[in-house]
Amino acid sequence: MSASELPRKEANVLKGHEGAVLAARFNGDGNYCLSCGKDRTIRLWNPHRGIHIKTYKAHGREVRDVHVTPDNSKLCSCGGDRQIFYWDVATGRVIRKFRGHDGEVNAVKFNEYASVVVSAGYDRSLRAWDCRSHSTEPIQIIDTFLDTVMSVCLTKTEIIGGSVDGTVRTFDIRLGRETSDDLGQPVNCISMSNDGNCILASCLDSTLRLLDRSTGELLQEYKGHTCKSFKMDCCLTNTDAHVTSGSEDGTIFFWDLVDASVVSKFRAHASVVTSVSYHPKDDCMITSSVDGTVRVWKT
């Protein structure tokens, strides 16, 4: 994909959140997106038509992250109220709340089968919650992190967490092994490449770092944006050709994956870009910002 095919044209603006939008996520097939924010709501949108579909209200504090199951039937969300909410998408009701984190919960993800929710918390732990049983106890607590866990990624067999202690830790369930890659800089967000071989870690020194997962070597660094104090997302494009991230000044950056050159950057929001999510198949991207909007970008 050449740089000209990057989504740079604003297709839609999703307005509705009051206050900052903290995360925006495509669903599995990219037809819908979810956003959550400081207004304690989660909103479901059709980004392509710019329609607001549903609002999920139950959180008592800001909602920091949301994730949807591959079958689009359930949501999980987390935020400042230290709980993980497990929602039914259709009815909009909370099926279960998982309590146990001793602090705000920063990130939450379903596993492949949507049977487990893994959450990353301010309490320096990753917790896995069972969606199948009625237990509200975590089925696993991973507390080897030395500082806040900011982000979590799941593969079929691994749980990967990025923490402010500068490490990206991979917990391989199949091998019973923890692999810690110390980047030396607080990790703000981690994101998997679509081929699953690399981890993109957004560090608080305004650098994105691309790690080879198998060897742990640093493949590339991407610089130019500002990321010093906000929880901001980064991701790779659907072809893994470019790396994208927001900046604290409201611009979106695209880097070439290989030579780390800034392929494109444009001002997208009036304020900090908190989240970027790339469409799984098309050249489409959604960004959320502290300015309260979610914007849809297309080529």
Binding site: Y113, I139, I173, R177, D181, G184
Partner: peptide, 23 residues
């Protein structure tokens, strides 16, 4: 120095393995 890789043993709980469909 960075990135520095370390490995430890880590014990997933049986139920987690079950839920991930792993042994």
């Amino acid at each position: 120095i960075f990135p520095r890789r370390e490995e430890f043993q880590w014990r997933p709980s049986p139920i987690l393995c079950k839920r991930f469909d792993l042994i």
